[in-house]
Simulated assay, not measured.
Amino acid sequence: MSKHASTSPGEDLEELDLMIDNMETASQEMEVKKILDGLRGVRAGRVVQGGAWVSYHADTITMEKICAALQQAGYQAGVFQNSDPPVTGTSAE
């Protein structure tokens, strides 16, 4: 995974893979997608079974705040991998 993903010239984004252990239904996936889409600084979010992939502006929002927003909604969200520095298996709890 690269340090920065660029979706348009001059737009540097961080990438974050999240584990969401208790997201098990399609309605929960839709809720998580809605939460991610509503966070200022999150550019894109793709929800997959058991987790999500997010690209975000690190100068606007942190990975801890992304996880906290999901945790406040009752989800067991933690960082699987982030792009800067590459870290796997950590938790933002």
Rank of each mutant, 00 (worst) to 15 (best):
M1R: 06
M1H: 12
M1Q: 08
K3C: 04
K3T: 14
H4T: 12
H4A: 13
A5Q: 05
A5G: 05
A5R: 06
S6T: 14
T7K: 07
S8A: 14
P9E: 07
G10H: 01
E11P: 03
E11T: 04
E11Y: 00
D12S: 06
D12N: 03
L13E: 13
E14Q: 02
D17G: 12
D17H: 14
L18T: 08
L18D: 12
L18G: 10
L18S: 07
L18C: 08
I20L: 04
D21T: 14
N22D: 15
M23K: 09
E24C: 04
T25C: 14
T25N: 10
S27C: 04
Q28I: 05
E29V: 09
E29H: 15
E29T: 14
M30H: 11
M30F: 11
M30G: 12
M30R: 15
E31S: 13
V32H: 02
V32S: 03
K33Y: 03
K33F: 07
K34P: 06
L36G: 03
L36S: 04
D37Y: 01
D37M: 00
G38Y: 01
G38T: 03
L39M: 14
R40E: 15
G41F: 01
V42S: 01
V42T: 02
V42G: 04
R43W: 00
A44T: 01
A44W: 00
G45V: 03
R46Y: 02
V47K: 02
V47Y: 01
V48H: 00
Q49H: 09
Q49E: 09
Q49L: 09
G50H: 00
G51Q: 00
A52Y: 01
A52D: 07
W53F: 14
W53C: 10
V54C: 11
V54E: 13
H57V: 10
D59F: 00
D59R: 03
T60R: 14
I61F: 12
I61H: 05
M63E: 14
M63N: 07
M63F: 03
K65I: 11
I66F: 04
C67P: 02
C67K: 01
C67S: 05
A68G: 12
A68N: 12
A68L: 15
A68I: 07
A69Q: 12
A69K: 07
A69T: 10
A69L: 08
Q71T: 04
Q71W: 00
A73K: 13
A73N: 12
G74W: 07
G74Y: 08
G74C: 10
Q76R: 15
N82E: 15
S83P: 11
S83Y: 03
P85L: 14
P85Q: 15
P85V: 14
P86T: 08
T88H: 11
G89T: 08
G89E: 10
S91M: 07
S91K: 05
A92S: 11
A92H: 04
E93P: 07
